[in-house]
Design a protein around this nucleic acid. Sequence first.
DNA 1: ATGAAAGCGCTAACAA
DNA 2: TTGTTAGCGCTTTCAT
Lengths: 334, 334
Amino acid sequence: MPRPTIEDVAARAGVSRALVSLVLRGSPKVSAGRRAAVLRAAEELGYSPHLMARSLASRTSHVLGVMVSDLHNPFWAEVVDGLDAGARSAGFELVINTGGRSPARERQALTGLLSFRPAGVALLGPVLPASAFTGASAHTPVVLVSRSSRVSTVDTVNDDGRAGSAMAVDHLVSLGHREIAHIDGGNGSQSAPRRTGYVTAMRRHGLTPRVVRGEYTEAAGAAAVRALLSPAPPTAVLAANDLNAVGAISALEEAGLSVPGDVSVVGYDNTWLAALRHVSLTTIDQPRAEMGRLAAEALVHRVRGERVTPARHLLPPRLVVRATTAAPRAMSGL
Amino acid sequence: MPRPTIEDVAARAGVSRALVSLVLRGSPKVSAGRRAAVLRAAEELGYSPHLMARSLASRTSHVLGVMVSDLHNPFWAEVVDGLDAGARSAGFELVINTGGRSPARERQALTGLLSFRPAGVALLGPVLPASAFTGASAHTPVVLVSRSSRVSTVDTVNDDGRAGSAMAVDHLVSLGHREIAHIDGGNGSQSAPRRTGYVTAMRRHGLTPRVVRGEYTEAAGAAAVRALLSPAPPTAVLAANDLNAVGAISALEEAGLSVPGDVSVVGYDNTWLAALRHVSLTTIDQPRAEMGRLAAEALVHRVRGERVTPARHLLPPRLVVRATTAAPRAMSGL
DNA sequence: ATGAAAGCGCTAACAA
DNA sequence: TTGTTAGCGCTTTCAT
């Protein structure tokens, strides 16, 4: 048994399709009697409008497509919260897709999203090549979160990764560390600026950078630490993100090194994982909900044609000191 | 500039709309020459079909709607992985929505999903009243994950929560515990069977159940522990889920109690959070990916009309012993 | 205030 | 093998 259509409602209420349409969209130019009849008929039939037929006919859409690169990383859940709030308050609805941190899968996800002809698309931490979304941005507003772009039809929302890494380095240096290693995010989104920020800050302090390639996962954090163990472990590690940091901590402890006693560890993101009292990770906070909200806003502005120049949000990160950083052993013994 | 339509492609390739449609859907009854021309035109225009116009015309859908109750709980990300794999291999695509653990929001999410007229809908850990989805299930196949239902038009995929809780209790009892408390999941999905399993197992061992109301969050775990501290803390706690367990552990440690030295803690779900070496939580494993796969399969079977009887998957949970459980202090002193 | 008619992008008979 | 025609469920002029 197919779902009831507007035609069914019209028939039951004894009016025309057009009238039902008006009532459903709250037009004031409908008599109270007819309005009541239509609403009752709709109610009785359990009618709910076919959103896509509607947007096909009206040539408009109130759907924002969201591609999440990695549903497992709590960071994105928190960004989605902000996006959801922003979209909702502007009368838009979210449709989410996931990319599994693979360019090919992300491409599919984006195509899938676009096939709904959404009003706009947000790509959260995409790793796909820029060409994949610049084309789309000609027809549909696109906003990138945690990834930069110079394409003028694409908006971006990022934290200042260079500044964030520098804050972490400065914090560690001020504690007395001089051997500070960095596990990077490989070809993950935003890993380049964070790496640059780290290297620059190290040089500024007259220290030698030591970067080991990683990924935004726990396993990569653990693997990277094993690589760092020889010839001699650093006294501090700036991880790619919180997840990565937790993996690094585990591997350090497995190797018989205590955190922060022997090695200090700093994460990045400040997700709930870092805040777990049991983890208490010193980390760099990104304003996650705010980033989501700004992404929604950027899209909505483009949709409404209120802006044609690219939005380039670069938000200031913030150091959050918790329990995984301390003065190096040699220093504390002084 | 609007996106190109099938009409644009047809014009550019010098053929009719219908022919383009045939080519795009891989019909064999098209000459090689025309096919090439059409594909080239589509390529040049960057054309991608309007999925909703397609499903409107064909009266079919290859979209599965997914309502995730809580995007922050890693459990669901792992279920979605399975769902995605299952859907993909059957030629379906996922559209995800989130409910924020609130009945009202979930209702909106479900309505939003249904307005796309998906082939089927999966509700992951819904807390909304059954009436909200029984109506929908008359028109659209519905599968519930981590929530039971007796409605014959609704399929369900659950782990055996009673058995899972019993396993946890048995494990703790075998270690020598007698004062075992349970933090429940409040009105969260599946909290009832887990609680029943706990109470039944406790009675079977001649022990007195002690249940404190909770929720599937870290904060609730911490709050529940504070309530458990007086008059005297138990020697073991079965938490509502992994997230909850981690909160409980933090609160215990804050109160000066060590885990598992003073108090043993068992989680539920076996998400990556529990597996983090830094957490090493003893927990009850649910086959998350498998549950997602089964949910997708249930939907696909209904869509294809291959089954009209309700699917009732009840999967066996499994005890995973890690580092948060040990014999109680009094025993180990013997 | 209400209805008739056209059309959104596409598929599915049916013709040719 | 290809084109023509009639919708799918809805909105939107344009009349009335």
